[in-house]
Computed example of a mutant assay.
Amino acid sequence: MTGWHASDHLVARYADGCLPEADAWSLEKHLESCGGCALRVSRAVRATAAGPALDGIREKILADVRGAVPARVPEAVPPAHGPVPGAPDPARPAGSPVRTRPRVYRWPSAGPGAVRLLWALGPAVRGAWLPAVLLVAVGAVALAHGGGIANARPWLLALAPVVPVAGVALSYGPHADPMHEITAATPSAGLRLVLTRTAAVLAVSLPLLTLAGALLPSAGAPNAAAWLLPGLALTLASLALAGYVGLRTATAVTGGGWLCAVLGPVLTAPGGLTDELGERLSRYLDGAPAQGGWAAAAVLCAALLAARRPAFHFLEKS
């Protein structure tokens, strides 16, 4: 706890819901360690139109908790020097009641930092997406070394850029998070939460798929890390486009566009599928011009994403 405390104007703006996102996040962090400011904010929120609804929710939660807490069992409080249990206490007059205190039940709980982190990551590191990433990575290695397929790397490199895009689509929205309505109403929602979950998706998929690609035979395919910039550019493009058409539609456009551009011509080629795929991926991924183009695309998409930041306050609200 520091010497700084929230001003009345700041508390009033927070209660009305018109405080900017960064200021609201800073105030919430301060409330974790300042009981006085937390009490003032609570009173200010109760004075708004949301007060009666919050009171009803509070009473319902307290009623459920009271029904779940076991009955309190009184236990005798021994004197400071503790006489033998069951022996009469010479300091207590005969016939006076024994002093008792209720048994205190402590429920295990995580700290505020752990709760905030788990809430922020949310569905990005659970659900069907994480097993799918493991299936792609482990399956490719198993096919190459156990199935005798010497040219599995091109197929992994073709699928790898859309894996984080799919993870982004599955990490934010009512289809992915059962608590999305509550999450979307908090000051920390919007682009901040989307980027947090996107970072969690990238932190899992990038090293895992790159390691899997390194374990596969090259067979003339691009190197195992050649897909990283394209994957990042497609992810940023999905986020930038989401400000216009929504997250799921944006990821379907970018991920589907990549698969059509890479796999479409290969499926209609007269020669071998894998050889044709390796040549096409080499044109898309190998060399400084190709990687420089993907880097420029990533920077451009990041700039567009920053410009569309206000749109994320209304993203996937329903």
Results as ranks from 00 to 15, higher is better:
148 G>Y: 09
148 G>N: 02
148 G>V: 05
149 I>Q: 15
149 I>V: 15
149 I>A: 15
149 I>F: 15
150 A>P: 04
151 N>E: 13
151 N>M: 09
152 A>T: 05
152 A>S: 02
153 R>M: 04
154 P>M: 01
156 L>I: 00
157 L>Y: 01
157 L>R: 00
157 L>K: 00
157 L>N: 00
158 A>L: 00
158 A>H: 00
159 L>C: 01
159 L>T: 00
160 A>C: 01
160 A>I: 08
160 A>F: 03
161 P>C: 10
161 P>L: 13
161 P>N: 04
161 P>G: 04
163 V>N: 02
163 V>D: 03
165 V>W: 06
166 A>I: 12
167 G>Y: 10
167 G>M: 05
167 G>K: 07
167 G>P: 02
168 V>P: 03
170 L>W: 10
170 L>M: 15
171 S>N: 04
171 S>Y: 10
171 S>I: 07
173 G>N: 08
174 P>Y: 03
174 P>C: 06
175 H>I: 00
176 A>T: 08
176 A>M: 09
176 A>I: 08
176 A>Q: 07
177 D>C: 07
177 D>I: 04
178 P>H: 06
180 H>K: 03
180 H>S: 11
181 E>L: 13
181 E>M: 12
181 E>D: 14
182 I>M: 15
182 I>W: 15
183 T>Q: 15
184 A>L: 09
184 A>R: 13
185 A>S: 12
186 T>W: 06
187 P>N: 07
187 P>R: 11
188 S>I: 11
189 A>M: 08
189 A>E: 09
191 L>D: 02
191 L>Y: 12
191 L>W: 12
192 R>E: 14
192 R>P: 12
193 L>G: 11
193 L>Q: 14
194 V>P: 10
194 V>N: 12
195 L>Q: 07
196 T>V: 15
196 T>E: 14
197 R>V: 09
198 T>N: 13
198 T>A: 12
198 T>W: 11
200 A>S: 12
201 V>Y: 13
201 V>Q: 13
202 L>Y: 08
202 L>W: 11
202 L>Q: 07
203 A>Y: 03
203 A>D: 05
204 V>P: 07
204 V>R: 09
204 V>K: 06
204 V>N: 10
205 S>T: 12
205 S>E: 12
207 P>N: 02
207 P>M: 00
209 L>G: 04
209 L>E: 06
209 L>A: 04
209 L>K: 02
209 L>D: 05
210 T>K: 03
210 T>C: 03
210 T>D: 07
211 L>H: 06
211 L>K: 11
212 A>C: 05
212 A>E: 06
213 G>V: 07
213 G>N: 04
214 A>G: 14
216 L>P: 01
216 L>R: 06
218 S>E: 15
218 S>P: 12
219 A>W: 01
219 A>M: 06
219 A>D: 13
219 A>V: 00
219 A>G: 11
